[in-house]
Design a protein around this nucleic acid. Sequence first.
DNA 1: ACCCGTTCGTTTGGGCCCGTACGATCTAGG
DNA 2: CCTAGATCGTACGGGCCCAAACGAACGGGT
Lengths: 190, 190
Amino acid sequence: MVGKRSITETEKAVRARLGDIPLRREQMAAVSNIYRAAAAVRQHLENSVLRDAELTWTAFTVLWEVWIWGESETRHVAEEAGISKGTLTGVARTLETRGLLHRAAHATDGRLVLLSLTPAGEELMARVFPAFNAEEAFVADDLTADECLTLADGLRRIVARLEAKGEERRQELLAGGEPKPRRGGRRPKG
Amino acid sequence: MVGKRSITETEKAVRARLGDIPLRREQMAAVSNIYRAAAAVRQHLENSVLRDAELTWTAFTVLWEVWIWGESETRHVAEEAGISKGTLTGVARTLETRGLLHRAAHATDGRLVLLSLTPAGEELMARVFPAFNAEEAFVADDLTADECLTLADGLRRIVARLEAKGEERRQELLAGGEPKPRRGGRRPKG
DNA sequence: ACCCGTTCGTTTGGGCCCGTACGATCTAGG
DNA sequence: CCTAGATCGTACGGGCCCAAACGAACGGGT
């Protein structure tokens, strides 16, 4: 599910594949392990707690944001959940259909939509979140509390670096070539 | 894009939301930062190197596996890439249409399909991978090499724990309640 | 040769995901 | 007022994603 070849084995194959290209091994090991760990943790939670509650990862994330912060504007929920506003429209509709989420108009700004949990949504989160947190603790249970904090700090510094300098970096990389559109996305009106 | 509220702020809101439930804060911080970092890194790479090459994250992962390991059976590629075999069928078809991937029958086992890169695929990877690796190095550039190794080790231990005990744990959690089907997935034949 | 359980990759259905286009709405500046 | 620009959530198109169902192919046992 996460790959059965070891990091060491992979690095060896990479060096064999292009021994001339200078690799940054430590950074590569750290970053590629972020993907592996994220996928493994997500899969564990999806196949245990979330499956039991019949929630997808994203649906849970959306409910969690609204649960913690209370009634929220959709753009903020999308931002916090790390999904596009277009995606949120669909997820929110699904959750509304299931009677877990409520959509309401803003009192003074007619463009805004506010999301809040229904009583059923509140009940679900009160039941699911403790189980979710228990599994988060389970996956990290081979690490001491100190090691968890060290890990969290290293990851936080990567996130902080990208928030501070990511956009600038992407601009630099694109300088010269026009920004090709990502595959997918609505076609021009013509 | 990754959320503008701090971890500290979030934890405070969580405690306010359910002060009675005992949280495991260190583990929670470590694990939730894994999601944040993974999403931030993936988004950075998708919006720079991969966008320039007109590749999605998954498509790149599939090409990378075949590039590093050479002609491979599809089930192994899916396993290593961390996607289901059904997903791989679609991704491989897309890449085949674009002339980057080649599909061939196995010499003796008629069930197997072998994937390999076309010359165009080889050329693309030789150009894209160095840029990809450079961005992996960029995102971790605030960490020393030692810190990268510490980070990689912590993440590796989480992955190892899940590989060793994840399945068993999920069995324990399901004991008592029948395993509800994940949302999505083909309906039973009835 | 013929079963029969196993293992492939593919199909299918439901859902997530992004980025562009779009219409409704708000807000400044005249 | 009124109009130009900004910003909101939604519609849409293309692609990814999973799990169950499926048919082709394998392989051991008779």
